[in-house]
Design a binder for these strands. Structure first.
Length: 484
RNA sequence: UCCUCCUUAGCUCAGUUGGUUAGAGCAUCUGACUGUUAAUCAGAGGGUCGCCCGUUCAAGUCGGGCAGGGGGAGCCA
C-alpha cells in the first residue's frame, strides 16, 4: 500500500520515543542542509526532519527545495533543538515531486495578501491560508452538526431558478442560446426563451429561501447551505459574486424564536472552532495583531481575536428595535457633532453602514440585533406587524450586525396570512402567478414561520479576523475576476 | 458604479528641484559552514520603471488616456 503515512498533526500529539513513522508533505524550508520543516496541511505546525550528515546523496539534498513533496521515513526522537518537541531522524527520503526553486513563486517569508490572492492556487500552502481554510472547514462542519443535533433537515434548493421575484439582487442568466445574435426572437425583437434549454428564462439562485419555506411547511425545520450568486457590481472587501449562504427556515417560529436560534447558532459554530482549531485561531490572532501594529492607534481593535470570540460567546447580543436604534443615533454626540456623512433624517430612513457601525462598534461594542424595520424598506415576504401607528408600519425583520463585518444575518418572520401577503405583493409589483407555488403554502395549512440567511464567508471573516472576504473563499469570484 | 490612493528586480520597497551606468533587504544561483528555527557568511546573475500618447535637449520622475490592484462608499449576505 502506498499511503501508509501518519498525519503530522497526529504525530505531533504523540510522545517521541523512537517509534518509526512515515510522513508525507511539502517542504516549507530547508535549513542548514540538515533540517527540513515539512508540512502536510493537517496542522499549521511542521515536523522537523533531520538529515544526518552524509546519510543522503548530495544530489537528493539539492532537490529538497521549498514546496517539493517528500515521503520521509525515520525514527521519532526528542529534539535537541529548542523550537520543537520532536525530530524525525530520516532513514529514507523520497522526493515525490520536485519544485523548481527558481520558478516557485512563494518564498519562506512574509507575502502580502494581495500577492497571494494572485497565487490563489498555491496560497493554501502558506501558514495564514492553511489556518483560514481549516477554520472554514470547521465552521462548515459545525453548521451541519448544529442543525443535525436540532433535527433540522438539510435541504438542497435549486441552483438554477426562475423566480425573479425576491429582489435580492441582480442575477446571472443561465442559457444555452447562442450569444452571437442568432438566438430566436419574439415578434417584438426580444429573445424567445421558449426555445431555451428550460423553455423559459432562467437564472442562478440569489437565495434558497422561498424554496426553503416549502420544506419548512412539511418538515418543520430545514436549512440550506449552498452557493449563492449575485451579479451586482460590488467592489468591496465584504462582497462576492459567488458566495455560500446558510438559510434555516422554521415552522412554528416567531421573530423572537428566530433571533434566539440565530444567536445560539452563531455562538455554537464559534465555540466549535475555538474548541477544535485553537492552534489555527491562535496563529490568526497573532497575525492580526501584527497586522494591526501597522495601523494608527484609533483604528486598532480593542480586543484580540481570541478575546473577541470569547466575548461574543459569553455575552448576549444587544437586541433593539429599529425605532430605538434611530433614537439612539439621533441623540448620539456623534450625530450632534454632525460627524455622520449621511444625515439621520429620522424614522423610515434606511440605515447606512456608518450608522450600523456606530451602533455596533461605538455604542454597544458587541453584536447587535436590530428588529421591526419599516415595512417600506424591506422585502414583501416579511410579516407585517399588527397594531402599528398609521404611517409607521413595520415588519418582523431582524438583522444581526457584527463588529468589523456589518450585516452577517438577515432574517424575518414570514407573512403567513395569504390575504396580507398577496396585497403586499401586488403593492410591490411582484407577479403572483409566477409564485403560485409559494402562495400554495399559505393556501394549504399555513403556519407562522420564520428564517434567516447567514453569509458564510462573512462568518469566516469574523472568526478568522481576515479583513477581505476574498481571503476566506478558495477562489473568489468578483466583478472582472474569475481566475482558477 | 462613484471617490481616493497605488503600480520600479521573483517578493517587499527606496529613488532628491526632470540630468550620466536605476538601488537595498529578502529570494534565486555558486561556494563555505553544519543543531538550524524566515539559519548564517562570501560572491554572482537578475529591470520594456504597468501599457499607450504627449511636454521637454533630456522622463522612473511632469501631463492625458487605458489596464490592473488596494482602501472607502453604494447595493447586500
Amino acid at each position: 500500500m502506498f499511503n501508509k503515512r501518519i498525519k503530522i498533526k497526529e504525530l505531533l500529539s504523540q510522545e517521541p520515543e523512537g517509534q518509526e513513522v512515515t510522513v508525507m508533505g511539502w517542504v516549507r524550508t530547508f535549513r542548514n542542509n540538515q533540517f527540513i520543516a515539512l508540512n502536510d496541511g493537517s496542522t499549521n505546525n511542521n515536523i522537523q526532519v533531520v538529515v544526518a550528515l552524509g546519510s543522503q546523496d548530495d544530489e537528493l539534498l539539492k532537490r529538497i527545495t521549498t514546496s517539493a513533496s517528500l515521503k520521509v521515513t525515520g525514527t521519532v526522537v526528542p529534539s535537541l533543538g529548542k523550537g520543537q518537541k520532536m525530530d524525525l531522524n530520516a532513514t529514507s527520503i523520497e522526493i515525490l515531486g520536485d519544485s523548481d526553486a527558481e520558478k516557485y513563486p512563494l518564498q519562506p517569508k512574509k507575502h502580502s495578501l494581495e500577492f497571494l490572492r494572485e497565487k490563489a492556487h498555491l496560497r493554501f500552502r502558506t501558514s495564514t491560508f492553511g489556518s483560514v481554510f481549516r477554520v472554514r472547514h470547521a465552521l462548515a462542519f459545525a453548521v451541519h452538526k448544529f442543525f443535525n443535533e436540532k433535527r433540522f433537515v438539510y435541504m438542497h434548493t435549486p441552483i438554477i431558478t426562475v423566480s425573479d421575484a425576491e429582489g435580492a439582487g441582480e442575477m446571472f442568466k443561465v442559457t444555452t442560446l447562442p450569444l452571437d445574435g442568432t438566438a430566436p426572437k419574439n415578434e417584438d425583437g426580444s429573445i424567445n426563451f421558449k426555445e431555451d434549454f428550460f423553455g423559459r428564462s432562467t437564472n442562478l439562485t440569489v437565495s434558497g429561501q422561498l424554496e426553503g419555506e416549502l420544506g419548512a411547511t412539511a418538515f418543520g425545520d430545514i436549512y440550506t447551505f449552498g452557493p449563492t450568486f449575485r451579479a451586482e457590481n460590488s467592489n468591496t472587501a465584504r462582497h462576492l459574486a459567488e458566495f455560500w449562504m446558510i438559510e434555516p427556515e422554521m415552522a412554528f417560529y416567531d421573530l423572537e424564536d428566530n433571533m434566539n436560534l440565530a444567536e445560539e447558532f452563531i455562538k455554537y459554530i464559534i465555540k466549535y472552532a475555538l474548541e477544535n482549531n485553537k492552534e489555527d485561531l491562535e496563529f490568526l490572532a497573532q497575525r492580526l495583531a501584527e497586522e494591526e501594529k501597522q495601523l494608527p492607534q484609533d483604528k486598532r481593535s480593542e480586543m484580540g481575536l481570541l478575546e473577541k470570540l470569547e466575548f461574543v460567546l459569553n455575552n448576549g447580543f444587544e437586541r433593539l428595535t429599529y425605532t430605538d436604534a434611530i433614537q439612539i443615533l439621533k441623540e448620539s454626540n456623534h450625530n450632534k457633532k454632525k460627524k455622520f456623512q449621511y444625515e439621520i433624517t429620522g424614522w423610515g430612513m434606511d440605515m447606512q453602514s456608518e450608522h450600523e457601525r456606530y451602533l455596533v462598534e461605538k455604542h454597544f461594542k458587541k453584536p447587535v440585533i436590530l428588529y421591526n424595520y419599516p415595512a417600506a424598506i424591506k422585502a414583501f415576504y416579511m410579516r407585517q406587524n399588527d397594531g402599528c401607528e398609521p404611517g409607521k408600519e413595520t415588519v418582523a425583520a431582524m438583522d444581526i450586525l457584527a463588529p468589523g463585518i456589518g450585516e452577517i444575518v438577515g432574517g424575518s418572520q414570514r407573512e403567513e396570512r395569504q390575504e396580507k401577503l398577496e396585497r403586499r405583493m401586488t403593492e410591490m409589483h411582484i407577479p403572483l402567478e409566477e409564485l403560485w407555488w409559494y402562495l400554495d403554502t399559505r393556501r394549504f395549512g399555513t403556519v407562522p414561520h420564520a428564517g434567516f440567511g447567514l453569509g458564510f464567508e462573512r462568518m469566516v471573516q469574523f472568526v478568522t479576523g481576515m479583513t477581505n472576504i476574498r481571503d476566506v473563499i478558495a477562489f473568489p469570484r468578483t466583478p472582472g475576476s474569475a481566475e482558477f
